[in-house]
């Protein structure tokens, strides 16, 4: 390709991207029409793995019945899109703006049936949520919410950066190796309670000073030696003869 043509190509692509970025994508809920913006983004970024109609390929799972909740969870936490199907699926900065995510979510929702994005009111019972969190969530994500490594290539992520909507979606969808929490296990009230507790955990249940990395015993060990014992040794050297 001659140099000038390449440059022109780039300019066109950039202009196209800029157009998509600036164009206010209207993703009004309940709009029964087609979803041109969402469909365009889907074709461009998702279809190569998940198939043109969300039917799935050997590179990606079918999206026909995952629903809006799942699409919103994966896109808003930056877990999707990934460049290579073998890439690690982990939390990143979202690749799209809010409007584009809205359009994509709506499009994926229109591919089949599946749970909608839950509407999480912020009136959950924090105390009840705490008990439920400790029974159902703390075994993987930890009572302080930091998350740990699990078996067979799985890592439980921290919940300290999740929005209330994402927490509720994860409970419905069961992303990755996380099990699904069906209404019989966590009903509406209980889901709102868990969401409220995670929110409280994020906005600070810490008392009594700096919480360090919130990893519990590991931080405490590092501080006990790195601050406590070490300072004591310095004190001893200050007070007594050094050599």
């Amino acid at each position: 390709m001659p140099r000038g043509l390449r440059l022109a190509f780039c300019v066109v692509v950039a202009a196209g991207l800029a157009w998509f970025h600036e164009r206010p994508v209207s993703a009004q809920p309940g709009d029964p029409g087609r979803h041109p913006a969402g469909e365009h983004l889907y074709r461009r970024d998702c279809a190569s793995c998940h198939g043109p109609a969300g039917e799935g390929t050997y590179r990606g799972v079918p999206l026909t019945d995952v629903g809006e909740a799942s699409a919103h969870f994966y896109l808003s936490t930056g877990r999707m899109p990934i460049d290579d199907p073998y890439d690690e699926i982990r939390r990143r900065d979202p690749a799209y703006g809010e409007a584009e995510i809205g359009a994509l979510v709506e499009f994926v929702g229109s591919l089949g049936s599946g749970p909608p994005v839950p509407d999480v009111a912020d009136d959950g019972d924090v105390a009840a949520g705490g008990s439920l969190y400790r029974l159902h969530c703390a075994q993987c994500h930890g009572s302080t919410g930091v998350g740990v490594a699990l078996a067979a290539g799985v890592t439980a992520p921290s919940v300290l950066h999740s929005t209330p909507t994402q927490v509720a979606e994860a409970l419905i969808v069961g992303p990755g190796a996380m099990p699904v929490f069906t209404p019989a296990v966590l009903g509406d009230d209980e889901t709102r309670a868990v969401v409220a507790y995670v929110d409280a955990l994020q906005s600070g249940l810490d008392r009594g000073g700096h919480a360090m990395a919130r990893s519990g015993r590991m931080d405490e060990t590092l501080a006990a030696w790195g601050v406590g014992v070490l300072v004591m040794l310095v004190l001893a050297r200050t007070i007594a003869r050094r050599r």
Binding site: L150, A152, M178
Partner: peptide
């Protein structure tokens, strides 16, 4: 310890204390 750490899809149960799988 309570082996409550269920990994769906990989179908594993992991113990939170010493990671017996």
């Amino acid at each position: 310890c309570p082996v409550g750490l269920y990994q769906a899809r990989t179908e594993l149960l992991v113990c939170p204390c010493h990671q017996a799988t």
